[in-house]
Write a protein that binds this DNA or RNA. Structure first.
Lengths: 95, 95
DNA sequence: TACATAGTTCAAAGGTTTTTGAACTATTAA
DNA sequence: TTAATAGTTCAAAAACCTTTGAACTATGTA
């Protein structure tokens, strides 16, 4: 079992990942589509550079907010709703 | 009515306010007590300086996560649960 | 093979957030 | 009036986050 400090570290990481307008827009976009999409397609929809996209997807993945599926040279991402449920929807239960 | 950009600005502000270990500990503390507490008392419980406390309470207040009630020379704070409900518990409905 | 495409990595630059201590205001109590 | 207490403000420093472009790896296609 993880201790209190580790629990709040994870929460801080998730809230940091959510605390950015680009990443929130990505989440919104992935939520609407509700299926796997290639990073490149999301990046183009957000009007951001490849490098910036790569940076933001890494932060979302490390926070556990998206899952990643590499197929050929493309990386398909989608929301990991269980993480949102744990830290947002059930915030008070898991605080 | 606010537009989409304003909505996500507010969300970013709330997630930034949550994205800090001290502020998350303050929220945890206020949640357990579940009543007004003076800033000074919270600050002492968190082992932070007056200045640091003042800084963090300001961020929590500006995000709408706490309400403030000044009585004499003391400032009593408590959680504003409606903001947590809106941005966390009902995250998907308000995205 | 050669070329194109998807995505990563790196370091530098710029921007933002947090901590610090000293000086401050406002209120209370002796 | 004097001293103590609660909290704020300020500027400087330190720490941290984000963007940028160039160079890179890996894969797919002609």
């Amino acid at each position: 079992m993880v201790n209190q400090a580790q629990k709040s570290d994870a929460a801080v990481q998730i809230f940091k990942a959510l605390a950015d307008p680009i990443r929130l827009a990505i989440i919104q976009y992935l939520n609407q589509l509700d299926h796997e999409v290639a990073c490149g397609e999301v990046g183009r929809a957000m009007h951001i550079s490849k490098t910036s996209g790569s940076y933001h997807f890494k932060i979302l993945q490390e926070a556990g907010l998206i899952t990643v599926n590499k197929v050929g040279r493309e990386k398909y991402v989608q929301l990991d709703r269980s993480t949102f449920d744990h830290y947002l929807t059930h915030f008070w239960q898991n605080l």
